[in-house]
Design a protein around this nucleic acid. Structure first.
Length: 273
DNA sequence: ATGGTCGTTGCACGA
């Protein structure tokens, strides 16, 4: 029997930065400290022309971005070579007018950076849009991806998967992010073959990634866990650590989201002798 | 205290 061999460590991060223009200094500082191999960003609020690719290149990151200015905008930064970039849901699926989804191969893994619609309220057309957006994401997985491949979906899902993921379930009754249709569509992502890697490491309630700027909610611990790293099983089985970096929510001019960092020790590619 | 704070080719609206 051969003993376990050393794998390839890879660090994947995701961060809703709530304007990359307003947050660039903090993002640079954070990347230099945490050194993720792949970093998915959401809510860049930039046009592609304004995306600071050179800043990231100088730090050793290739990058891809899809933006529309003003709202939304997602990016993938990678120290590993980027290829096979796809914007949105891909061919054969009704395209989305908003810049919320971007796929790229980053070295050994296929990565998606996603910013799901907020939904606003259960009786809003934006809520219907949110559910249809998730239906199309599922369709994209079924059509274009394989659950046996190394796949990582990162981003702001705008869904708290269960009651552990909100500070007070009673306060959220009748709200978006916790409604049964949203949680049901989220469970279908898991049924397809994705794993919420944070929950492979932590069972406790009260571990959040987003806190409203208002009312000192961060300091009161009133948040939600809506920023997630979902990995296909071959990757999730290799998850060694996950961290929500709530320190990044502190200090001057923070995003209202904390980054999530996930380490994987991928199997070494073996070539035949 | 039924609000609060951020962001934006801003000056109202989305989160």
């Amino acid at each position: 029997m051969v003993g376990s061999v050393g794998g390839v460590p890879i660090r994947v991060a995701t961060w809703n930065v709530n304007s990359l223009k307003a947050r660039l200094g903090r993002v640079e500082e954070w990347l230099a400290t945490v050194e993720p191999d792949v970093c998915c960003l959401q809510e860049t609020k930039l046009s592609d022309d304004a995306f600071p690719a050179m800043t990231f290149q100088a730090m050793g990151y290739e990058s891809v971005h899809v933006g529309q200015g003003r709202w939304n905008g997602v990016a993938i930064l990678s120290r590993l070579p980027i290829s096979d970039v796809v914007t949105g849901f891909g061919p054969g699926i009704e395209s989305d007018p908003e810049a919320r989804l971007l796929w790229a191969r980053c070295g050994p893994i296929r990565v998606a950076s996603l910013y799901a619609p907020n939904g606003r309220s259960l009786d809003s057309e934006h809520y219907e849009y949110k559910l249809s957006w998730y239906e199309r994401l599922l369709e994209a997985l079924h059509r274009h991806e394989n659950a046996d491949d190394a796949l990582v979906l990162c981003g702001d899902f705008n869904i708290a998967p269960d009651d552990r993921d909100v500070y007070d379930p009673d306060e959220f009754v009748g709200s978006t992010h916790v409604s049964e249709p949203e949680r049901a569509v989220f469970r279908r992502l898991l049924e397809w073959g994705l794993v919420d890697v944070f929950r492979e490491h932590y069972d406790a309630p009260g571990l959040f990634s987003w806190w409203d700027y208002r009312a000192g909610n961060f300091h009161k611990g009133k948040g939600m866990r809506i920023d997630l790293v979902l990995a296909s099983r071959p990757v999730a089985e290799r998850s060694t650590a996950v961290l929500i970096d709530r320190n990044a929510r502190k200090g001057k001019q923070p995003s209202d989201h904390a980054p999530v960092v996930a380490d994987f020790d991928l199997e070494q590619e073996r070539t035949a002798p």
